[in-house]
Simulated assay, not measured.
Amino acid sequence: MSGEDTPPAPRARRIGLLVTVAAVAYALDVVSKFLVVRFLEHQEPLTVVPGVLVLNVIRNPGAAFSIGTGMTIVFTLIAGAVVVAIIRTARQLRSLPWAITLGLLLGGALGNLTDRIFRSPAPLQGHVVDFLQAFPVTHFPVFNLADSSIVCGGVLAVFLAWRGYQIDGSRQTEEQADD
């Protein structure tokens, strides 16, 4: 059998999936932010579905829910550390669900990190573009697709850990955890 007929190793396929999910999440975030800044910034909020979804462009210098608005540089460093941690963890990756999870986390972290590095007011101090406001009558915070990707990845990570799925593809059962 020639090298061309040999299927890629499971780890390589999982890393490929991680990179693909991260690239899609990142691209959707970057393109959506470009479009809302270009066409909706400095405009009145746009109601997409009354009472459910409004496009309302804001610049967020802090973290989720505008926490820590004076600590943009700290959040930039944290996001950079998260990206490095995910890349390092990927070396152990043998699990399809964890590949998707890490891809969502990586794509979201890179999306917001790009804003923090390149957007105004200054390099490494940029404000993140948020524009999705769900259920506006409840004053739900404004967020973006990177935030959604991070939240979905976080929920998946908690679920996988709770079910005992490991990054290396193994599964820890309750009996093993008790030992």
Score class of each variant (00 low, 15 high):
residue 4 E to D: 08
residue 6 T to I: 13
residue 6 T to H: 15
residue 7 P to K: 05
residue 9 A to N: 02
residue 13 R to P: 00
residue 14 R to E: 09
residue 16 G to E: 12
residue 16 G to Q: 07
residue 18 L to N: 04
residue 23 A to M: 04
residue 31 V to L: 04
residue 34 F to P: 03
residue 34 F to T: 15
residue 35 L to G: 00
residue 38 R to E: 12
residue 39 F to N: 07
residue 40 L to E: 01
residue 41 E to R: 12
residue 42 H to C: 12
residue 42 H to N: 12
residue 43 Q to N: 13
residue 44 E to T: 09
residue 44 E to V: 15
residue 47 T to V: 09
residue 49 V to L: 11
residue 52 V to H: 14
residue 52 V to K: 15
residue 57 V to H: 10
residue 57 V to K: 13
residue 58 I to G: 09
residue 60 N to E: 13
residue 61 P to N: 05
residue 64 A to N: 11
residue 65 F to W: 12
residue 67 I to H: 15
residue 68 G to C: 06
residue 72 T to C: 01
residue 73 I to K: 13
residue 78 I to G: 04
residue 79 A to L: 04
residue 82 V to P: 02
residue 83 V to I: 14
residue 83 V to N: 15
residue 84 V to R: 10
residue 86 I to Y: 02
residue 87 I to N: 03
residue 87 I to P: 00
residue 88 R to H: 04
residue 89 T to F: 06
residue 90 A to F: 12
residue 92 Q to E: 10
residue 96 L to A: 14
residue 96 L to V: 13
residue 98 W to K: 09
residue 99 A to L: 06
residue 100 I to Y: 02
residue 102 L to M: 14
residue 106 L to T: 03
residue 106 L to Y: 04
residue 107 G to E: 01
residue 108 G to N: 02
residue 123 P to A: 14
residue 124 L to E: 04
residue 127 H to M: 07
residue 128 V to S: 06
residue 141 P to A: 09
residue 144 N to P: 00
residue 145 L to T: 11
residue 146 A to P: 03
residue 146 A to Y: 15
residue 148 S to G: 13
residue 151 V to G: 01
residue 155 V to L: 08
residue 158 V to P: 01
residue 161 A to I: 05
residue 166 Q to M: 09
residue 168 D to R: 07
residue 172 Q to P: 00
residue 173 T to M: 05
residue 174 E to W: 09
residue 178 D to A: 13
residue 178 D to P: 00
residue 179 D to R: 08
residue 179 D to G: 05
